[in-house]
Design a protein around this nucleic acid. Sequence first.
DNA 1: ATTATATAACACTATTTGGTTTCATGTCAA
DNA 2: TTGACATGAAACCAAATAGTGTTATATAAT
Lengths: 114, 114
Amino acid sequence: MAQSAKKHDVFQAIADPTRRDVLKLLSKKELPISEITAHFPMTRTAIAKHLVILSEANLVSGRKVGREKRYRLHPEPLTELKEWLAYYEQFWTNKLSILKYVVENNKDTQDDDK
Amino acid sequence: MAQSAKKHDVFQAIADPTRRDVLKLLSKKELPISEITAHFPMTRTAIAKHLVILSEANLVSGRKVGREKRYRLHPEPLTELKEWLAYYEQFWTNKLSILKYVVENNKDTQDDDK
DNA sequence: ATTATATAACACTATTTGGTTTCATGTCAA
DNA sequence: TTGACATGAAACCAAATAGTGTTATATAAT
């Protein structure tokens, strides 16, 4: 399957909450699809499709180990996000009210379930 | 369709290239829909829908001025993106090739480690 | 070799998305 | 008031996504 086909970019890849959670999971360690699936209320096939999208954005890659395929995180494409974001930082680095916003809306969606 | 303010989050809002371009446009100055539309190869209605999505993510707001509605940028919700991204910076701050890339493009690498 | 397991490959459906056209409403200016 | 302009809203359409289930293939262990 296409690993470099840029059908999906990093912006689309992280738009989905499930995919963000998958990335978070894989940031801890390499995992096979079945183990990833165990953390979500959906089928393995659905997770596999999410992994395809993440792969197309080059955010993850899979390597076969025996009969399972282990996926691991590739954070590099996130630099594109950071680049994009950098442009807008000029608009808040001199606005202290933003800090207030961050504190009041501290919605970090990281779940460290394992 | 009930437009609850959080139907679209910032991640979904910026997933579309057109919407990212709209944000960039509005970062220069406040603009009415018709002027925004002039920059894109699509109808005013399509742009209006994108603006609804951006509004739901609180990335833009519109105020009526006479018979036109001027939209302006609200960069604050992008901090959520920055927060999310900060978690992954740990994975490339020790990868010097990436750091080099970022530095060479004059992007500051402040880390909001959690 | 047989069997159990992990993943791949399809086929299908429902929903969402991004876009259109059409029509209605409201505002400015002559 | 009338006409031009700007927006809002609805109905509709095509394509892409996200999900399902089933079947096939490859590998590991016995």
